[in-house]
Write a protein that binds this DNA or RNA. Structure first.
Lengths: 233, 233
DNA sequence: CGTCTTCTTGATCGCATTCAACGTGTGTGG
DNA sequence: CCACACACGTTGAATGCGATCAAGAAGACG
């Protein structure tokens, strides 16, 4: 959930995704630990794997590669998030480290056993997946119905909030990653950032750090007035 | 799955979605039956409901309404499909009849009980949801990375195949619905259809019926050479 | 037969892409 | 330490796709 390099920070309230985290960490505590460097592959597309992964620290990107080599990054994940739960056998997404990562591995079968153990557990797992579905839908709406700068603004807000609205926010991902996530070109992402900077809505002391100078206007730029469908909560 | 007005036709092979259907119908057999006419609301957005629904016949659309009144149709569903399983309490999608429909109602709680009953059942339900997630991802890629006419072509292929590649295929949904689904305007959908017609790839004896004249070229127009990520299987 | 909805076509406009060039930062070897 | 290379980021100018605005055609229905 959090595209944030550090450890456990206070998260903004999110429904099922947060409630299930403690439940799932219960089984993820046992398991191999993997350490990744930026660019390392955690899961190859189409790979056959019995495992899924819980991110202890760092940020990963979940992507699909298209026939022409383009990448669609479906989401970024951070501390506490589960990835690689695509399918019982075949992985449909690739997952790659964006920053240095520490990741725990757990067999997928365990999830099914957990689901059977109690009504609450099965409900939690179903709601975990439903939450992902809702995120996918919100992402679709955001990408299809928002302009380039609205998408960039919304993305900045998301990262900013995930890092606890800190005055200095770190962008773990490259411009290309942001572009691949928001379905834009790298140039358009740059231009949108420049525009926000010029208008004093944000400041960027360096390419990978930014400051939210005017939250109210950034919200306006993101084109959302606390609407339930927005990607940010 | 099938945007098809008739009863049970032979479906193109699809992984989890198809395998789970018999399992879920087992509990959907008991329950109220509702009959809907085109435009009737099955589920209102944000509604609180204990029920989910299995479509016996007809086509429904699942949508979200945006702040400005636009609609994003996330998917169309037909015979055998389950809808309204959004969340344990609150519905995040609206669902509305596109054609005349017969629909069975079943309490959501039943699904959780089914999930607990056996390892296979819980696996089936998880895979059912994972299949929806995969569909959502393929849709995102299709909408963000394909041109207008590629989207329209891909959509026609989907409907065509769901109706068993019949020589005369029925379009249950309006141009506006197609536009709302493909994130286009109604005019662009029309123009794409006209272009396909002019080039002899399809024929349209009337607005709601079409014939695939040249499957090979329609596939090319859809911009996909049997790639695993394509929305059509 | 007229009205209403849905569909189609045309003309123009604007946003994001594309192509191209330039800047910036970082690491490596001389 | 500087020089160079190379990846990443930024900016500019031109192009094109789909949206918008506007009007007309074709069904559906009383």
């Amino acid at each position: 959930m959090s595209a944030f390099p550090n450890g456990d920070t206070e998260q903004i309230g999110r429904t099922a995704q947060d409630r299930i985290k403690p439940e799932i960490s219960a089984f993820a505590n046992v398991g191999l630990i993997r350490r990744l460097r930026p660019g390392d592959t955690l899961i190859a597309e189409g790979e056959t794997s019995r495992f899924c992964y819980k991110i202890d620290s760092g940020v990963v990107k979940e992507y699909n590669t298209l026939e022409d080599g383009q990448r669609q990054i479906s989401d970024f994940f951070g501390s506490g998030d589960i990835v690689g739960f695509d399918n019982s056998v075949e992985q449909l997404h690739g997952v790659e480290a964006v920053s240095d990562c520490v990741i725990r591995c757990a067999p997928k079968d365990t999830l099914y056993r957990v689901a059977m153990s109690s009504a609450d557990a099965s409900r939690l797992i179903v709601e975990f997946l439903l939450e992902r579905l809702n995120r996918a839908d919100r992402r679709l709406v955001m990408i299809t119905r928002k302009t380039a700068s609205e998408r960039v603004s919304a993305f900045l807000l998301r990262v900013w909030k995930e890092q606890g609205c800190a005055p200095r926010t770190f962008l773990a991902m490259s411009r290309q990653d942001i572009a691949d996530h928001l379905a834009l070109t790298i140039e358009t992402v740059c231009r949108s950032l420049t525009s926000l900077r010029r208008r004093g809505v944000i400041a960027m002391p360096s390419a990978r750090y930014f400051t939210v100078c005017d939250e109210e206007r950034l919200l306006q730029c993101a084109g959302e007035e606390k609407h339930p469908l927005s990607l940010e909560t």
